[in-house]
């Protein structure tokens, strides 16, 4: 039995809203740049979950194809982001974002 026949779509909306908010909380709460990256991944996954839920609720495969593209973008983002982070660590010996305040007004 499929979940969409017994679970209303509102529960999926609620779940991915909560996961997205936890991602936002992680970005605001932590100073370690790696944890901030992981929170961004969490937000992307909340959106992916919502896209899949709507896709199978409407029996339309386009939403799931869109999730593939989001995964590709997330993989590219992580590769470049972690490379930048490695460079930052090599120069400052830390991943604290408060050190990176040269662009701050």
């Amino acid at each position: 039995m499929s979940a969409i026949q017994v679970i209303p779509i509102n529960m999926y909306l609620l779940l991915s809203t909560v996961l997205f908010t936890i991602g936002v909380l992680g970005v605001l709460f932590r100073r370690n740049a790696i944890i901030i990256f992981m929170s961004v991944e969490l937000m992307l996954n909340a959106i992916n979950l919502l896209l899949v839920a709507f896709s199978s609720y409407l029996s339309d495969g386009k939403g799931q194809v869109f999730v593939f593209f989001i995964m590709a973008v997330a993989a590219a983002e992580v590769a470049v982001g972690l490379a930048i982070l490695m460079m930052v660590y090599r120069n400052t010996k830390s991943t604290d974002i408060n050190i990176l305040n040269k662009l701050k007004w």
Partner: peptide, 19 residues
């Protein structure tokens, strides 16, 4: 696991492999 519940089996496998 949620993807499997939503009948998105292939996406679940890809999600585990990629993420």
């Amino acid at each position: 696991g949620h993807y499997v519940l939503l009948n998105a089996q292939f996406l679940a496998a890809v999600h585990v492999i990629v993420y």
